[in-house]
Amino acid sequence: MYIAMNRFKVRPDREEAFRARWLEREVLLRTVPGFISFQFLQGPKREDHILYASHTVWESYEAFISWTQSEQFRAAHAGAGQGKVLTVGPPVFEGFLVLQNIEG
C-alpha cells in the first residue's frame, strides 16, 4: 500500500475559493486501477495560512506512479498552476510506503 499526500498552506482570504476548487471538481480517481481512497483534509489555522492536505491511498507505489502518468492525472491537474494565488508557496508532496495497516 502507498499513501500520497500534498500539503497546501492556503491564504485565509482565499480559503473559500480553494475549498470550492477542490469540492466542486470532477473526481477522476475512481477510474484509475489501484486507487483505494481519497480524503480532503483541513488542518490547523495559523496567522498567515490554513493548512489543507489531499490524501490518497493506493494499492501500491506502482499504482500511484501509473496514475501520475495517466490521461486522468493530466486532466485532473490541467489548471494546477492557477492555484498559486490561493496558497502561500507551492504544495508540498509527501509519499509513504505503508509498513503496517491496522483496520477496525
Rank of each mutant, 00 (worst) to 15 (best):
M1G: 06
M1R: 04
Y2W: 08
F8K: 00
V10Q: 00
R11S: 05
D13T: 02
R14N: 00
E15Y: 02
E16F: 01
E16R: 03
A17R: 01
R19Y: 01
A20N: 07
R21S: 10
W22Q: 08
W22I: 05
W22C: 03
L23F: 03
E24W: 04
L28W: 04
L29S: 04
R30Q: 15
T31V: 10
V32C: 09
G34I: 09
F35K: 03
F40G: 13
L41A: 06
L41D: 05
Q42P: 03
Q42F: 05
G43F: 01
G43P: 03
G43S: 02
P44A: 11
K45S: 15
E47H: 13
D48M: 03
I50E: 02
S54H: 11
V57Q: 11
A63H: 04
A63K: 04
S66K: 14
T68V: 11
Q69M: 10
Q69P: 02
Q69Y: 03
S70W: 02
S70Q: 05
S70V: 03
E71A: 13
Q72S: 09
Q72L: 05
Q72T: 04
A78Y: 09
Q82P: 02
T87Q: 06
V88C: 04
V88Q: 07
G89V: 02
P91E: 07
P91R: 06
V92R: 09
V92W: 07
F93H: 10
F93E: 13
E94Q: 11
G95R: 07
V98L: 08
I102V: 10
